[in-house]
Amino acid sequence: MNKGWHPVIRSSLLLGIIALLGTALLAGVNDLTHDRIVAQEKRRMLQQLNEILPVASYNNDLLADVIKIEDPGFFRHPTAVTVYRARLDERPVSVMMMVTAADGYNGDIRLLVGINAAGTILGVRVVSHRETPGLGDPIEAEKSDWIFGFAQKSLHDPEEKGWAVKRDGGGFDQFTGATISPRAVVRAVHTTLVYFQANKQALFDTPAAMIDQDD
């Protein structure tokens, strides 16, 4: 480094070089890890989907057969609903819809709702939430069996007014000390079912759009 340079220029150059080195390092590591990170995200997503959807029931590339829908009339949350379509030899088998319930006790609850072509629920899983540990978190499959109660349900089982927690006169249990979290989940699942019933054809027929795997 030239001693004759003005200290300000010297310092700036030095900082610039350190920034450049740091950036180069990060670019290199990013390059090395990028494919692996994408693969990990995919593996995790597929794992979540397959928890509800039996692997043998479809043979298309689930993660590529995806559309995003925005329908403020149904889904009030600004996050678009991601729909994974499962097909067996091109025949529609089921959809897996990633919906967001905005009316949880503490922020958004992200749900994965699997519905087969006949309109029956394959299963529901909570993907992420910030409900109170010990009170609202039995909506998680790891914490209680509650979420499994949605399997085999449909719009006609129970009937319309049954789609609520028991405190609201419906057929689903709430938890001791927590009604809001299960209520939000029940509502979101019901909305998803209604949407599916009304847009079934379009849900399967819309061509897949390449989308970012933002989760």
């Binding site: 080195l21 390092l25 990060l26 590591v29 890890t33 692996r36 990170i37 593996r43 995790r44």
Partner: peptide, 15 residues
């Protein structure tokens, strides 16, 4: 820079 490198590595290997 160091922390970001570690974050990327953890993201890739300890997902």
């Amino acid at each position: 820079s160091v922390v970001t490198v570690i974050e990327l590595l953890m993201h890739a290997f300890f997902y």
